[in-house]
Amino acid sequence: MSKFTGKKQKEVPAISTGSMPDIIFMLIFFFMVSTTMRQNTLLVKISAPEATQIAKLERKSLVSFIYMGQPTQKQLGTETRIQLNDQFATPQDIPEYIAMERESRDEADRKLLTTSLKVDKDVKMGIVTDVKQELRKVGAFKINYSTRKKVEKE
């Protein structure tokens, strides 16, 4: 037994951290592939309504967003506001916004431009109708009502 008891306990070898960068890089690639860049910071509170008949919004680069909802900042009141890009706007600003969005896309892609309406579920239809009328006037007919997938209740 002296073979085992006589010697001092050997030190545990340090764990190799050499492959740590590889693991982290793997995670990075995962996130780069599966996520998209945040477009703009929301100035309005949006909780999308739920629906079952939904389709995925394809080709995010060809989508322009219009946000509608209550301002997140309390001092701005509770009235529904429209957000285009990073600022509040009125329905009258929409033609200009759509024109700018068209301008920034390729000539060939302009027809495929979709407008996604991200609207809070408590918003009244009046302002939504105004926005839709403006969109009709400038010929942005492809729209998408942003909704979440409804979870079926048993």
């Binding site: 945040r38 919004l57 492809k142």
Partner: peptide, 16 residues
């Protein structure tokens, strides 16, 4: 800097 949420919605066409 990125979000994961997939945009889904009801696609509609507005009349001219």
């Amino acid at each position: 800097a990125t979000t994961m949420d997939v945009d889904t919605g009801i696609a509609r066409r507005l009349p001219p």
